[in-house]
Write a protein that binds this DNA or RNA. Structure first.
Lengths: 229, 229
DNA sequence: TAAGGAGCAATTGTATGCAATGTCACACAT
DNA sequence: ATGTGTGACATTGCATACAATTGCTCCTTA
């Protein structure tokens, strides 16, 4: 494998996909805005093909809508779906936490360790430390992204591609809903993460499930109280 | 709009996408099988581009896995995720049924009727009739597809693009899991559909939610008893 | 004036050619 | 015998060129 000196530059398709999604979440691209492949291609200095693929991927993620031969537009923020999305997320993350705890127990019982599992577990540890540091420095604006990465990390520990893909989809929407906000419940919510990981590490299936479910439920009521009283 | 004589032939991309997905669900393409764009393009008599887009879409749906520059393979059947997928589906469909009932109530209270809503409601009526006819004729093999169409129809009635997209994703996996099976619980499950629609039509939010949740829960226990005793 | 249809411009869908990258076999040193 | 480096090959990623479809403008007409 050729070792890149500093860092692998992401592929053009991935780059524009992330960029467009960022612009949509941040509000730089408002709902209903028409998007053409050619204009974006020129903007980023690449051809229409990668832009096209990025737009289709974003359509699958629910950020843009497109009709054949008619073009793409920025989708509407799913604000009306907030409560239902949280309800689904509650069931979903309870499942990922339960499975993650089961996987953790398996790591210590079987002989051969799963390197991917340990790598992911280590990433989560770093994420938790980064979050604590951010809180210490009053940089609460870093928490939303770290929060998403934590929850996706737990999904990764669950070793279920299906559940991880579902959480990716929902997490994108939730992040979109929180766009204007800067986590007022940030501190308390973050502290619950270590308690969840403790249950997972201990292989305590039902406790992990309960704590994660309660954690998401708190987020849900917090959001609904603030934005839909 | 130019009116096509008999029926609009689907676009090549959509055609191969449906074809490949069908082959994967049916088992004609088994897990781990390597898929190359060129071979499929030649097989269907089209270029690599539509095949490529179809494969990426199927990757988003969870049926294929691909790594950059390395190609695509058929994903593994998510049999280990069955119970968790059903759990998420339970929460998800309870939400769609609740919202569908709310939308139904709105149709009668406000002045202007939503034509899309009524069209979807009519489609569901036809689906239910088709299912009854299939049962009458002992053609139980038609039920799985009609079942998916019914549940997606209810999601459509919910008027939530987010929830509909999530259900599409989960329904695909569930259909995959049921692949070898030919609905032994088919008859009884089908009869519950009219009861669910009655609650939705009446605008009875909580009853619709409960009946749909119970319906999915029955499917879940039925599946787990049969395949994972 | 309003309704309807033909023509046109803009945009997406598809085909082909080239560049970039991962994979695998094989030689070779330890 | 086993691990390691190297090179050719197969396959995907991107660029460019062409075909197909949509939505709109504007003209016609009752």
């Amino acid at each position: 494998m050729p070792h890149s000196p500093v860092r692998d530059a992401p592929a053009p398709k991935q780059r524009v996909q992330d960029e467009i999604r960022r612009d949509i979440i941040s509000g730089a691209l408002s709902a209903g805005t028409r998007i053409t492949e050619a204009s974006l291609g020129e903007k980023y200095g690449i051809s229409r093909v990668p832009v096209r693929e990025a737009l289709h991927a974003l359509e699958a993620e629910g950020f843009v809508e497109s009709k054949p031969y008619a073009g793409s537009t920025v989708a509407a923020i799913p604000v009306d779906d907030a409560d239902d999305l949280f309800a689904v997320r509650e069931a979903l993350e309870a499942a990922t936490a339960r499975r993650a705890a089961k996987q953790a127990a398996a790591q210590f019982s079987v002989g051969v360790p799963d390197s991917h599992w340990w790598k992911t577990r280590k990433d989560i540890a770093e994420i938790l430390d980064s979050g604590d540091a951010a809180i210490e420095a009053d940089s609460l604006n870093l928490l939303p992204e770290l929060n998403v990465r934590f929850h996706l990390g737990v999904a990764e520990l669950s070793a279920s591609a299906s559940l991880t893909a579902l959480l990716r989809q929902i997490a994108g929407k939730i992040e979109w809903l929180y766009a204007a906000d800067v986590g007022s419940r940030g501190r308390q919510a973050w502290n619950e993460h270590r308690s969840i990981m403790a249950a997972i590490d201990a292989g305590d299936v039902s406790t992990a499930e309960q704590r994660m479910g309660g954690h998401v439920h708190q987020s849900r009521t917090g959001y609904m109280d603030r934005f839909a009283p």
